[in-house]
């Protein structure tokens, strides 16, 4: 075997090359991973620990194991005899949040789908302008946008003024600080998240399928629901998730438009780290919120897998 020598030299060179590449890659990834692991992921571990501790008197925690934070969700400890009494306050905040987020998702879908379709059927140059218009608000400050919404739906806001001038109503509609305001605010905040993924899937739609639908005796509505909507499903699902998740964890919208009276989970969590100071309970609430989000993502991933395996 005379050629054994050069072969192994080549193999060694390739090995060396691979090792070099691995080292280079590790160095390149190090800063990003280190920052995110240390500042975003490690804290989640701390949150888990904190949720099993006892609240400190002035915020923070005392290092004493306790499951009270989780018990507190459902029950209230009677001060005198230490028995547990069912308490619906926190559960109802969660349910309210889920309800509002679902409602906003549906609202955004009803507005967002036609918009995405409209854009996808425009000539290419016009599409870019429309997409820019839809994306731009996403890059402007959410706090300021919410504040702007507050300005126009107030009792003295221009919506009420215009409605009154038009003689449609005689006294201002009270929208601000109601569930309706939060609902409107959530749609307004996250509408672009609905439009963009739906647009992305409609843009790929082969419009000869639409023609085939008409050719096979479907009218406009039937073409919409039997051809277009099913084909846009991946975009619709993505859009719904992208609206539901930030909607569920919303903080600014209920804070400003709900006036701090109509709480959602996000505000409740923040409060535990502020005025009411129960860090372990806040940590537990945050983890439950995260668990909800993970459940939604998992269900979606599983459904997507099932869809893929049905195809394959």
């Amino acid at each position: 075997m005379s050629d054994r020598e050069p072969q192994s030299a080549l193999a060694a060179a390739i090995d060396q090359n691979k090792r070099n590449e691995r080292v280079t890659r590790a160095w390149l990834l190090a800063p990003a991973l280190a920052i995110i692991l240390a500042i975003s992921i490690l804290p989640l571990g701390i949150t888990v620990v904190y949720s099993f501790l006892t609240p400190g008197t002035y915020g923070g925690v005392t290092w004493e194991f306790s499951t009270d934070s989780y018990v507190q969700f459902l029950f209230q400890r009677d001060i005198f005899d230490d028995t547990l009494v069912f308490n619906s306050a926190y559960v109802s905040i969660f349910l309210r949040s889920i309800g509002l987020a679902l409602g906003a998702t549906l609202g955004a879908l009803i507005l967002g789908f036609p918009t995405a379709y409209f854009i996808a059927t425009k000539p290419r140059e016009q599409r870019n302008i429309w997409l820019f218009l839809i994306t731009l608000p996403f890059w402007t400050n959410l706090l300021i946008r919410t504040y702007a919404m507050l300005l126009i739906i107030r009792d003295e806001g221009i919506i009420n003024i215009m409605l009154m001038k038009a003689g449609i109503i005689s006294s201002p509609l009270t929208i601000l600080y109601t569930d309706t305001a939060v609902f409107i605010g959530l749609i307004y905040s996250f509408l672009p998240f609905m439009v963009l993924p739906i647009y992305a899937s409609l843009e790929k739609l082969d419009f000869s399928l639409v023609e085939a639908g008409y050719d096979l005796y479907a009218n406009r509505l039937k073409v919409l629901f039997h051809v277009i909507v099913p084909l846009a499903k991946p975009g619709i699902v993505a859009g719904c998730i992208l609206v539901f998740i930030p909607g569920l964890g919303a903080y600014i919208t209920p804070e400003l438009l709900g006036g701090g009276k109509k709480l959602m989970i996000g505000n409740m969590i923040a409060m535990q780290f502020g005025a009411s100071r129960n860090w372990p309970f806040g940590s537990a609430a945050a983890l439950i919120l995260m668990a909800l989000v993970i459940v939604v993502l998992l269900v979606n991933a599983l459904a997507a897998r099932r869809g893929a395996s049905n195809n394959g």
Binding site: I36, P43, L44, G249, Y251, G266, A270, S283, A286, V293
Partner: peptide
Amino acid sequence: NQPLMIPEIVTAIATLSL
């Protein structure tokens, strides 16, 4: 992409704790 997937309020209080 983790910071994009977790509700901001969760990241916020977790970072505060750390």
